[in-house]
Design a protein around this nucleic acid. Structure first.
Length: 540
RNA sequence: GCCCUCGUAGCUCAGGGGAUAGAGCACCGGCCUCCGGAGCCGGUGGCGCAGGUUCGAAUCCUGCCGAGGGCGCCA
């Protein structure tokens, strides 16, 4: 489909060529100016070019304008030199009308798609919270992020699989088992154990050996994993695979990977323990792979797990989403993959900054061990999956955020989900009214879209036309929140249009044109809503 | 002490080399004979501080200040 910016960029390149200027090394932009009076688009080509050529930017710009005006473009109405050397483009509206046609012909499965991923296989791992307690609100935030990122990457044609790494072995599961047994025997939970209400509940249902810590740990973590799956499912999130840490340890894969590292000369033995020479790969310290008791460390298992992803299972790319509290393990993991011969670009680790909670002015402290977490499932039940997801997707994961439970649970207009869904509901309402009033269904080929000239209409169409670029950027920057930003803009433009323009009441021809526009807008908003996993409501 | 993030309006956040920095909430004031007022329109109010790079800095670099996180043979 047409990307107007690419078209204009082509005009600039052509014009520069005609001027005999080689700017192949120069990175110029075509952007939307901040102010409408500067035209629909502008380029800074003359300013960055003048620097390279050592000429005056305004001179170069005026020659550029001359060439551009000579070119034949069906969209160009005018171009002029402005400010310090910008070239501003004036366009007729046909590019906007073509976008309406594109939305209608491509529909929700095609509009906005692109081929950035080229069908490459990508494994996206996220949440992966230990099965030692129910998911809390913070888990839900990153779960929403990961799920939406997966949808985005699939939409730009990566072959995406999602995975949850289940830490179903090790000291924390042992502590869980010990806590369960203590409660089952009516004793106090040991120091550092898990004392939440859910453990007591599980203990009452435990009918296994009261002295078998391993069995108790497995019993409890299995049950908790079911709770976790439910909690995610309530948010509309499922995973393609649930990958067991125990299974990879039992398979012997960890030892094989450690041997491979040894063969690659990346390991030294210190006091009988294997140490990965991580400092050679950019880490700030070396890392133990085996403990004094002979067990493998968590890192050893993690390296084997990622080797399994990229080599054994042969994914082209793997993306992990970690909380910032796990940033310390990033360099060692990346270093190990590099030592194993995997190109570093194939493993990408995204760090989400911490989410903290407050209720009004009061900071909410929580601890999984003590059991005073804010339960994800409870909050989701209270406000709904769509509101929950949109709240968490409003902002970049690079910024630590503060969630006010008082606001979250009040269903207030602080959650823009209602504003956005209302725009879609209004579109649906227009269609219902069309049927009720027996207005004929619009046929795009018989409709004169050039009747759409109201500023509100043009504003809506301009924002709509940005969607495919926004999708591409959101996918490549791993930034689903940019979809939400677009949704707010788009919903706002629609509400403004709806307020000022009567879709069904301004004469038959205009009604038909507006019906096409609204249907196109509905395609666009549905695409964006599905990318963030928010329901497109017909009624509210 | 060292390392990683982040400081934008009263609050929550967009903008991350380009022309006069935006939105929501809050506060003040307008708009319902008309497709859904969960809406629309207007107003008040801001780039942590100091240098530097650049034709141009909220944006890039350095330092300082402030917030969060990390620096286990835990996971």
């Amino acid at each position: 489909m047409l990307r107007i910016k690419d078209h204009l960029r082509g005009l600039v390149v052509q014009a520069l060529g005609d001027l005999g200027v080689d700017l192949s090394t120069v990175n110029f932009d075509v952007t939307e100016p901040a102010r409408a009076e500067f035209g629909e688009f502008a380029t800074n080509a003359a300013m960055v070019g003048a620097k390279v050529l050592g000429t005056n930017p305004r001179d170069l710009a005026s020659r550029l304008v001359e060439q551009i005006l000579n070119s034949s473009s069906p969209y160009l109405k005018g171009a002029e030199l402005a400010g310090p050397g910008f070239v501003n483009f004036r366009l007729n509206n046909s590019w906007l009308y073509e976008d309406v046609s594109a939305a209608l012909s491509m529909g929700v499965d095609g509009y906005g798609r692109s081929d950035i991923g080229k069908g490459k296989r990508l494994l996206l791992e996220f949440v992966s919270a230990n099965p030692t307690g129910p998911l809390h609100l913070g888990n839900g935030w990153w779960a929403s992020y990961g799920d939406s990122l997966g949808r985005l990457l699939a939409f730009v044609n990566y072959d995406v699989s999602t995975e949850y790494y289940v830490n179903d072995t090790g000291g924390q599961i042992r502590a869980l088992g010990e806590s369960l047994l203590a409660l089952a025997k009516g004793e106090a939970v040991p120091e550092g154990g898990y004392s939440g209400e859910y453990v007591s509940t599980l203990a009452r249902g435990y009918d296994g050996d009261l002295n078998d810590v391993t069995a108790a740990g497995k019993f409890a973590s299995d049950k908790i994993l079911v709770m976790i799956k439910e909690s995610l499912s309530d948010l509309g999130i499922t995973f393609d695979t649930w990958y067991s840490q125990a299974s990879i340890e039992e398979s012997g894969a960890v030892g094989e990977v450690v041997e491979l590292l040894k063969a690659n000369g990346a390991i030294e033995i210190q006091d009988g323990k294997s140490v990965f020479m991580a400092t050679r790969y950019g880490d700030n310290r070396d890392r133990f792979l085996t403990k004094a008791n002979g067990d493998y460390t968590y890192l050893a298992g993690d390296i084997a797990y990622h080797y399994d992803k990229l080599v054994r299972r042969g994914f082209d790319y793997a993306i992990d989403i970690f909380g910032a509290d796990h940033q310390g393990q990033v360099p060692s993991l990346l270093g190990a993959m590099s030592a194993l011969g995997c190109e570093s670009s194939r493993l990408e680790i995204l760090l989400g900054q911490m989410v903290s909670l407050q209720r009004g002015d009061e900071v909410v402290k929580f601890s999984k061990r003590k059991g005073n977490v804010v339960d994800l499932q409870e909050v989701t039940k209270e406000i709904g999956a769509s509101a929950m997801r949109l709240l968490s997707l409003q902002t970049s994961i690079d910024r630590s955020s503060v969630v006010d439970l008082a606001v979250v649970t009040s269903k207030s207009m602080d959650n823009p989900v209602y504003y956005i869904q209302y725009a879609h509901a209004r579109m649906a309402a227009i269609e219902r009214m069309r049927i009720e009033r027996e207005i004929p269904e619009p046929q795009i080929e018989d409709v004169d879209l050039s009747l759409l000239v109201h500023p509100r209409e043009l504003e809506l169409l301009k924002i709509q036309s940005r969607l495919d670029e926004v999708v591409s950027i959101a996918a490549t920057e791993r930034a689903p929140y940019k979809i939400v930003t677009w949704l707010r803009d788009f919903a706002g433009a629609f509400h403004g249009f709806y307020h000022d323009c009567s879709v069904l009441g301004d004469g038959p021809e205009l009604t038909q044109a507006r019906l096409c526009m609204v249907r196109g807008a509905q395609v666009a908003i549905k695409v964006a809503l599905s990318l963030v996993g928010v329901e497109a409501l017909e009624r509210m």
